[in-house]
């Protein structure tokens, strides 16, 4: 697809144009970090913008969402109402390519062959994804490719103060057409290509074959030793999608984020818990991302955004977990799985 160049103010003008028809969400600086909020229609994220505090899954699969509303009426059948499917057109500007690719992973879950989540699907189809490439990796980042196009409709790369705009989908094309921007010249394209080629090596996240053999390995107990089983890593993970469904007392059936790290997650009403300790729970999180998910959907459920690394209260660094797993001996393994 096409590539364009935008100079300084042009990006702003284009976004202002988009904002006339759609709700534009952009990284907005709050007291404790960046968050996606309605764009102020005048400023672009500053140089200190690394990534948003919360992952963008929140914009498609909100932390809590009403699935059904109901009213109980004495002596009559209850009234049950399904909330409207969201219809507003949105643009997410400034999302990082790692996070954009997480949406493609989530699509496997919420827009599967057998069941489709109507709320998630509506938001996905109403939202244009305009991602902004990072200039360098942050200290806790370990994405494979800074310039990944996965999940983006439009990818914007800042080169020498101007913007190289790569159109990746028809939806992206439609949002860009007719604004009179110049097609990117060879010089800027070459420069961007060079940036793409000269990325530093990062951690190899493929531990699939190793995981096949270490389900019963004592390494899991060791790895989880300092874990406190809170939900930081899973709630801030752009690909973690576990949820609970509960009824509140005020007439709503609510879906809310849940976490495989919580003891209550798999505990049955009888008291039996298939994952009774932190060992099974950490193993589940790692196996899910690097073995179960790839086995089902042929992709690792970790995009390397580094939020879990940055925010873990005890500095349990998933990069070290990956390396320790890669290095562990598999003599005490079950080859059953």
């Amino acid at each position: 697809m096409s590539k364009y160049i935008m100079f300084g103010e042009e990006l702003l003008q284009w976004l202002q144009n988009l904002a006339k028809e759609s709700k534009v969400l952009a990284p907005v600086k709050e007291e404790y970090g960046y968050t996606f909020a309605e764009w102020d229609k005048k400023s672009l994220p500053g140089d200190d913008y690394r990534n948003t505090l919360k992952p963008p899954k929140d914009l498609f699969f909100p932390q809590h969402e009403t699935l059904l509303k109901y009213e109980k009426i004495k002596g009559e059948n209850p009234l049950v109402e399904v909330p409207d499917i969201p219809e507003d057109k949105r643009v997410i500007f400034g999302i990082r390519p790692c996070d954009a690719s997480s949406l493609v992973l989530l699509d496997n879950i919420f827009m599967g062959e057998d069941y489709v989540d109507p709320y998630y699907e509506a938001r996905r189809s109403n939202t244009l994804i305009v991602s902004l490439v990072c200039r360098t990796r942050g200290k806790s980042c370990f994405c494979e490719d800074l310039f990944s196009t996965k999940g983006s409709d439009i990818l914007i790369i800042k080169v020498d103060g101007n913007y190289l705009v790569e159109i990746l989908t028809y939806r992206g094309e439609a949002a860009f057409k007719g604004i009179g921007s110049k097609e990117a010249d060879e010089k800027i394209v070459k420069k961007a290509d060079k940036l793409k080629r000269t990325q530093e090596e990062v951690l190899d996240k493929d531990i699939f074959e190793k995981l096949r053999t270490i389900y019963d390995n004592p390494i899991w107990k060791q790895l989880q030793e300092k874990c406190v089983n809170c939900g930081v890593c899973t709630f801030l993970c752009p690909t973690c999608h576990c949820f609970d469904i509960t009824d509140d007392k005020r007439g709503k059936k609510v879906r809310s984020w849940d976490s495989c790290m919580f003891a209550s997650f798999t505990k049955q009403a009888s008291g039996h818990n298939p994952r009774p300790t932190g060992t099974e729970r950490l193993r589940q999180r790692i196996m899910h991302k690097f073995y179960y998910f790839p086995e089902k959907y042929h992709d690792i459920a970790c995009v390397g955004c580094g939020r879990c690394v940055e925010k873990c209260p005890v500095n349990l660094d998933i990069r070290q977990v990956i390396e320790k797993i890669r290095g562990c001996l598999d003599e005490k393994s079950l080859s059953a799985i």
Partner: peptide
């Protein structure tokens, strides 16, 4: 099999055994 389930449609993530969801 019996497992704790919520969504029943392979999304909520709590009833997996390996890569199989008991619900789906």
């Amino acid at each position: 099999l019996e497992m704790k389930m919520k969504c029943g449609i392979g999304m909520c993530g709590r009833c997996n055994i390996g890569s199989k969801y008991v619900c789906k």
